[in-house]
């Protein structure tokens, strides 16, 4: 565990907490893509199956359980409790266009052709693109509330910090995982446009509004 990895994990945790608090406090999930949240739930469930097979550390297990639980709670708030506030019409990204290529890619490019390993690989690929429905929703409505922007910034920063962690691990431990690195780079690139808008607008107190 190095500082980049810890900062990445905390950023990930912060993102999830921000999202839950936003929905809970405003009693609304307007502006949030339920489809992205469904994809994240699939990501956590397929990746953290190793909770049952491999013990790594208490930290590792607790974080995995928290991510799965928070993801489930988010889905519950969006699809059950505050269903009426869910932005159906704008959340129109077709997730099968992400799911199917990720399944195929995981079957072709993986470290080991076993069920657990393919599910892990699938979750890594899916996570890299899972934010697309959310970014699509923001682009369709042309704006995002500040709190939603903070959520996206924390969530995007998490994988960017992991990239630093992987550079550090490569230098310090000669450890690297090409699948995770490739997907992490893709994931971070997808946020670049948003990062730019966040830094130039949201941090200066303006609302995130896309040019018409």
């Amino acid at each position: 565990m190095n500082i980049f990895r810890l900062a990445g994990d905390l950023s990930h945790l912060l993102a999830i907490i921000i999202l839950l608090l936003k929905i809970w406090k405003t009693r609304s999930c307007a502006g949030i893509s339920g489809k992205s949240q469904v994809l994240f739930a699939i990501v956590y469930l397929t990746r953290y199956l190793d909770l049952f097979t491999t013990y790594i550390s208490l930290y590792n297990s607790i974080m995995k359980i928290v991510f799965i639980a928070a993801s489930g709670a988010t889905l519950y708030l969006m699809y059950v409790k505050f269903k009426a506030t869910y932005d159906h019409n704008h959340d129109s990204f077709r997730i099968e266009f992400l799911l199917i290529p990720c399944v195929i890619l995981a079957l072709i490019i993986n470290h080991d052709f076993t069920v657990m390993e393919i599910l892990w690989t699938f979750s890594i690929y899916l996570e890299s693109v899972a934010i697309l429905p959310q970014l699509f929703l923001v682009s369709k409505t042309g704006e995002a509330e500040s709190i939603t922007s903070h959520y996206l910034f924390a969530l995007g920063s998490y994988r960017a910090l992991y990239l630093l962690n992987w550079i550090y691990r490569y230098m310090a431990e000669s450890h690297y995982d090409l699948i995770a690195i490739f997907a992490g780079v893709v994931q971070t690139i997808l946020y670049c446009d948003f990062f730019y808008l966040y830094i130039t607008k949201v941090l200066k107190g303006k609302k995130l509004q896309l040019p018409a």
């Binding site: 990895r5 990930h12 790594i56 590792n60 991510f67 080991d112 390993e117 992991y162 995770a180």
Partner: peptide, 10 residues
């Protein structure tokens, strides 16, 4: 093992 190393991250 290498595989386990790969999975120590979240």
């Amino acid at each position: 093992s290498d595989l386990k190393d790969a999975h120590d991250e979240l």
